[in-house]
Amino acid sequence: MSVDITHDFYNGWYLERSRGWALGLALENKLFEKQSAYQKITVYQTQTFGKLLLLDDIIMVTERDEFIYHEMMAHVPLNVHPNPERVLVIGGGDGGTIREIVKHPTVKEAVLVEIDIDVINTAREYFPTIGSEFDNPRVKVLAEDGVAYIRNNQNYFDVIMIDSSDPIGFAEGLFQADFYRDVYNALKPDGIMTNQTDSPLLSPMIVEKTYSEMQKVFQHLFMYQGYCLTYPGGYWTFGFASKRYHPLNDFDPKHAQAKGLKTKHYNTKLHNGAFYLPNFALATLPAGCEQKNWSE
């Protein structure tokens, strides 16, 4: 399972090509570049999308649209679980998912495990509105291998979020059943996992494989959708894998609204709608998934 992504810099533009699709961003200047122990990290100032973070020349985040991804990753599971106190993020070194997690008053401990300390340091310096909560007293930041960390912390977390890049290189292990089994064991008996699961429009085989691997481990498996303009195709999906809770039947909009969360994208009506999928997305879910029957 892999993704073929190429890139180019031409006449002041960054171009990313993937799966027969291309995205271009007009650049103003390069702000930072470093080869870390794991990848090349680059920051550009763009003309219309604020600062742009590239890892190995692949888009990770822009200041203009990052909130959509991070809000959907975080608020969906945290508003389904009735009392999330301990939350883990694997990856997510830009800090955006952590920023959203600590908006929830029940969260007592939010652990970020990012393998590349240089990504965290880059976010601190160049993306202060995204990596704004690294020093929150409820947040613990660890520069470690997330796979190893999961194995050593069983039955501890209420919610685990896999905020990873695409299944390329060292991130490929985060999309396999063995890893999901470790996540399952690290969750409490009513725990929830969310993860980014790519584009069912441009990468249906990758999405099918990801959900088939999750289904080997989790009893309750759902897909929900979001829109990330600077990710391939703009249409993106997330996995909701749970030991107990249903993302709609166990979701209380009034309870969520009472938290007074300040969001730019997520709201309780959008929460419900995000789980009602177009047919091409439903087609990528494995047999036995409850959602495949919702459109009937």
Rank of each mutant, 00 (worst) to 15 (best):
I120F: 10
E144M: 14
L174W: 07
R138A: 14
T129E: 15
F127G: 01
A110T: 06
Q176K: 15
N153C: 08
D163E: 11
P137R: 13
R151P: 00
G131T: 00
G146E: 09
P128C: 10
G131E: 02
V111W: 07
P128A: 08
V113P: 03
A177S: 15
V111S: 01
A148K: 15
V113R: 05
F134W: 12
I162N: 12
D158C: 05
E109R: 14
E125G: 03
N155K: 13
V147Q: 12
I117G: 14
V111F: 08
D178L: 06
I115C: 09
F179V: 09
F175T: 11
S164H: 03
I168T: 12
E144A: 15
K140E: 13
S132R: 10
I162T: 11
D135R: 02
V147S: 06
I150N: 03
E144D: 14
D118K: 07
D163T: 06
T122I: 03
I130G: 01
F157Y: 15
L142E: 10
S164F: 07
I160W: 08
A110K: 06
R124L: 06
D118R: 10
D178A: 12
R138V: 13
N121E: 15
D145A: 02
M161R: 07
R124H: 07
I130M: 00
I120T: 12
S164I: 04
I115K: 13
Y156H: 10
D135P: 00
E109C: 08
S164Y: 02
G146D: 05
I160V: 15
Q154Y: 00
D163G: 04
Y156G: 01
I130H: 06
V147D: 12
A123N: 01
L112Y: 05
E172S: 15
D178T: 08
A148Y: 08
N136R: 07
V119P: 01
I117R: 13
D118L: 09
I120D: 11
V111Q: 07
V147L: 13
M161A: 09
F170D: 12
A143E: 10
L142M: 13
I120Q: 10
G169N: 15
A123V: 01
N152K: 15
A110L: 11
A123L: 06
D166M: 08
V111H: 09
G173D: 11
V113D: 02
I168H: 07
I115T: 06
G173Y: 04
E114H: 09
N136K: 12
L142V: 03
N153W: 03
R124D: 07
D145E: 04
A148I: 09
V159P: 06
N153G: 05
A177Y: 06
Q176M: 14
E114Q: 04
V147F: 14
N155H: 14
A148M: 14
G146T: 03
L112G: 05
I162Y: 01
D145M: 01
E144W: 13
F127P: 02
D118W: 00
V159K: 12
A143H: 05
F179W: 10
I117C: 03
F157G: 09
Q154H: 00
G173P: 05
I168P: 03
E109T: 11
Q154T: 11
N136A: 05
